[in-house]
Simulated assay, not measured.
Amino acid sequence: MARVNCPNCLAKATVTSREKQSDHVVHLYCSCNNTKACGATFRICQSFDHFLNPPVTNTTEMAAALLKQLPRQAQLDLLNSC
């Protein structure tokens, strides 16, 4: 898991609990480990943004869908060029 830092003093913080908002969003409740000088508690919103490289199953499905849109001869030509 990613490291969480206090937004006030930038010290390490500990995730004390999490609250799922949706499949792609979660709220992390955190506590600053710098208890003598800061001691802040705060909430971070963590969310999924996008894939940098899609999962293999998605890539295979996308390739198959694109191939199906080509005429039969174009499909064969493409497969034979590999």
Rank of each mutant, 00 (worst) to 15 (best):
N34D: 10
A64P: 06
L79R: 02
N33G: 07
A37K: 15
T14M: 03
T57Q: 07
T60Y: 15
M1Q: 13
C38H: 06
A13W: 02
D23S: 11
C38P: 12
S47L: 13
V25L: 14
S81A: 09
S47D: 07
A64G: 09
T60D: 07
T57R: 08
P7Y: 06
H50G: 00
T60C: 10
V4K: 04
A74M: 07
Q69Y: 07
Q73I: 13
A11V: 09
S17N: 12
L52H: 09
H27P: 02
A13L: 04
L79N: 04
C82S: 08
C30P: 05
L52D: 14
D49V: 15
Q46C: 07
V4L: 10
Y29I: 00
P55A: 02
L76A: 10
A2F: 11
T14I: 13
L28H: 08
V15G: 02
H50E: 00
R18K: 15
L52N: 09
R43E: 08
G39L: 03
L52P: 00
S31F: 05
N80F: 03
R43Q: 12
D77Q: 00
R72M: 12
F51S: 04
C82F: 06
V15H: 00
Q69L: 15
N34M: 04
T41E: 10
Q75V: 11
E19H: 15
E19C: 07
L78N: 09
N58Y: 11
V15K: 01
N80E: 07
L66F: 15
A11H: 14
Q73L: 12
R3H: 06
N5F: 01
V4T: 11
L28K: 12
H27M: 09
K12E: 05
S17F: 01
D77S: 05
H24T: 11
E19D: 15
N8G: 07
N53S: 06
L78A: 07
C6N: 06
R72S: 13
Q69F: 14
C82A: 09
T41Y: 01
K12Q: 10
F48E: 01
N53F: 05
N53H: 05
T14F: 02
S47F: 10
A37W: 03
Y29R: 14
N58E: 08
E19W: 14
Q46D: 02
N53P: 01
A2Y: 13
T59Q: 10
A63P: 03
L67T: 04
E19F: 12
H50V: 00
R3D: 08
A2L: 12
D49N: 12
F48C: 02
